[in-house]
Design a protein around this nucleic acid. Sequence first.
DNA 1: CAGGTGCATGGCT
DNA 2: TAGCCATGCACCT
Length: 892
Amino acid sequence: MSSSSSLTKVCFNSNCKEPLEKWRRGWRLRTGEYADLCDRCASAYEDGKFCETFHLKASGWSCCESCGKQIHCGCIVSFHMFILLDAGGIECMTCAKKSYILTPNPAWPPPSHFLPSQPECLKDLSMKRWSLIAGSGPVPWRRAPSLFNGSGIQSELQPGMPFEVDVAGGIDRFRNSERFSLSSLEKKQESSFERFIDGKLSFGPSEMLEDGIAAPKREEQPNPSVNVSQLTSVVKNDSSTSNLSLASAFSSKYEANDMNYACASLSQRPTLSTPVAKHVCSHNGMDSAGEAVVQNGKVRGDCRGRNQLLPRYWPRITDEELQQISSNSNSVITPLFEKILSASDAGRIGRLVLPKKCAEAYFPLISQPEGLPLKVQDLKGKEWVFQFRFWPNNNSRMYVLEGITPCIQSMQLQAGDVVTFSRLEPEGKLVMGGRKASTSPSDQGDEATLTGNEALAPEDDNGKYKFGELNSINGLTKGNSVPASFLPVNQIPKADSGTSWSEIFKSKFKVNETLEAKPIRSKRKNSISGSKGKRLRIENEDVIELKITWNQAQGLMRPPPKIIPMVYVVEGCEIEEFEHAPIIGRPTIPAIDHFGEKIQWVQCNDCLKWRKVPANALLHSRWTCSENVWGLDRSLCSAAEKLSKEELEDMIPTISKVSFNKKKNAKQDSDLVATLEGLDTLANLAIQGEEDVLPASSQAGLRHPRHKLGCTCIVCIQPPSGKGPKHEQTCDCVVCKSLKRRCKTLRDRREKKQLEKEAETAYPSQRPTEQVPDNDSSVDDPNERKFLVSPLKGQIDLNIQPERDEEVSPGSESGAMKSSLPDATHRNLRQQGYSSLGVGENVVGKQMQEDGTGRANFSNCIALDSSPAKTDVDHHLILPLDTTGSTSSTAT
DNA sequence: CAGGTGCATGGCT
DNA sequence: TAGCCATGCACCT
């Protein structure tokens, strides 16, 4: 199509047609090629005078509404020199730029992405402005929707053609941005800039700044969404590029498919940022500013926020997630930010606290606390509507998304998991994704990583993996890292996947349960601190857990064969030091067979049977019978196991037994979970779920002390917000059963109260407890007290148990915590949570359900004691036994 | 009483 | 030290 393709080239300019010996590149054609121009035309083009020179008599000239400057709007050449105004007419880019500098948050989806009729939104001045500007989509420029929306002009002119220029003003930011060091970018991604670097760029109106600053052309990305992933992968490990824009990189398709209007208004002022960002800034740890560069053509206050986004909010969206999102549409995904769900976020209150800067950068600007409804799509394409709003807070704002519980639960996310926010371009739709903590991509950022996974996660680009912490904790080796080359090829984790390590450790040894499962709690309030957790201090108990974890991990590590360790003694402890890093392999159990030969037992990954292999056999993490080359008769999973159960019991180290128990419990729990379809239940499981999977110490560490079992804070006790799906009346999920019990209990109470009132009339002096003033004592609610005076001897209502817990285990964290609670109502409520969820549910819940009375008798409680899970729950369940009497005596 | 809302508090960066 | 933000909790419905 381009003249360059013809044998005898002539100038592409139809008014010229001069034969070309040498030609220069002009504007981009719909084919993606460039108009080849003669020197004269090219000069005119580059000078921005092409239309003035050749199209002066053509139709389509308009005056800028602001400055009156004449702009040719009738051809592609000057396509980028103006914007269309909503009210009609055009504005030259110079004026447009001036007028938009003051525009808040224009880079925001069109109003269609918010709920339609929202009076308060209309009152929101910012929204008005937003609507005015962003009615055209996620671009910071104005355009006429009729012209630029959808395929409109684009399909007519240059379908699928990627443009190379960026938003007007982006260059300003680029130029002003100290962070955006071109030289550093070049170092990082020279190939991406070769066109720029080699100085062979050709500039046309679409690539020429008004002030003469040229922008390199962005290379085409026929399949931007794929490129996005690729880029993500490629650059992911390079944290040094983290200051660059990921989002920019993800806007390629947007520009490709819907960029004509963008070019119309933006490319006139192409920026360095676009190609730079698009190719370099695909780092997972994006710099939001980069996103702003592309998306927000104007320098705005919120853009500053983007520049300052903390690394922990950089989206580490995985390729899989990207593909999942992109599979639903042809859109380009712009990862915006992510956040580790706190207990509050994942709690039933349904409020997700948004990082302020993220909210201000990526969400519509709101001036009223009420905010506005925000449509967010999940990875499955399902649309949710959240209320995006803020609270005044210390002369600042706290942004929250309300009503997220159903979404969070549908994604089965818990505290510690990660929610990601992305934007689909060009629609501008927000996409909310979720990532389980255990599958979080390893933190490539500048913050330490502390989860089990990540402790084993890749350390650097050289394929090294962090074992230093492990080693230092155990003091066993001095090496700080294990070169990947030490690992069998199939055990080398992918550099960009934190999950690979869990694969490595997937064995029936549940060592990896602790290794891979739980994010480490930070010291502060036990908030979850995942890979990107900002609070990285670890509670003592967490350290203990880590040690255990590492110790367990040590069980998986062994020296490479034929490597003899140096043994030295430190403080009486023999320490083996290997010059070479250990190898991660399938855990085995060393033993001596009947012939006195050293062997090891290894468990098949598939059939779980134990097989005997030579002592020096090095097995990779996933080992199956089929790989049993040493015992062909046992090389099939169908072959019987040589070991008896008893032998196995003796053989397996304690730690493994513990692990097995844990696993067993975990399975019970998971079975339970499987039955808990209620969203509320899931939410509570986010808080209580892992109780019996992890040792108590670690659980304590995994939970905000105030969110331990027994926590009565609003987060924990909050019932379904009502915004989510309601349970059917016939639903017999645990939550509903619990609620029904609760109702029954309340009915009973009411009846009792009635009876007592009647009795009071007759015998007023027999109600001492009701005269106890309301205070912080364990039973401070008169109603509660009345209730505690249960006429049903030998029966305990679960509702009274928390108080008992406080009395019996005052030193317990939960007890102390609860004692600070202001009223018994919360305790009571909390107890409801107990009975409905968590470990206690396994025992109490079921028992309670059986009789449906909401009361458990002593035997039931005793039975609880035998629960293998020694958690707070146990206390809660057991304690009432010996305290009921005292309660009764107090009450009487 | 339960659920919802909005602000205050205080740990942390 | 200021600002952020996780959380608690008072207050309202």
